[in-house]
């Protein structure tokens, strides 16, 4: 199942970030810091999805030969 390996790594990373996000939001009292932290986390998650799941690099590298 090696072809799916990247997908599972990203999935784990996304899950961890989501849970961290949830706990961070519950614990962080300062509104501004919470906002910034959540923005950072959401940006990271979006970047991971776009880079690996949506194959963003193929936009400039072209379609890879499978």
């Amino acid at each position: 199942m090696s072809i799916f390996k990247v997908g599972w790594f990203v999935a784990v990373a996304l899950a961890v970030l989501t849970v961290v996000e949830y706990i961070f939001a519950a614990e962080m009292a300062d509104a501004t810091a919470r906002f910034l932290g959540l923005t950072l986390s959401a940006g990271t998650k979006a970047g991971l999805i776009m880079w690996f799941f949506m194959h963003l690099p193929r936009v400039w590298r072209g379609e890879e030969v499978h």
Binding site: E21, Y22, A25, A31, R34, F35, L38, T39, S41, A42, K45, A46, I49, M50, F53, M54
Partner: peptide, 19 residues
Amino acid sequence: HFVDVVWVFYYPALYLVQG
């Protein structure tokens, strides 16, 4: 995936950000 990316931003904005 794009719909998922949108939710990645919408979820904290609606559920987690407060005040």
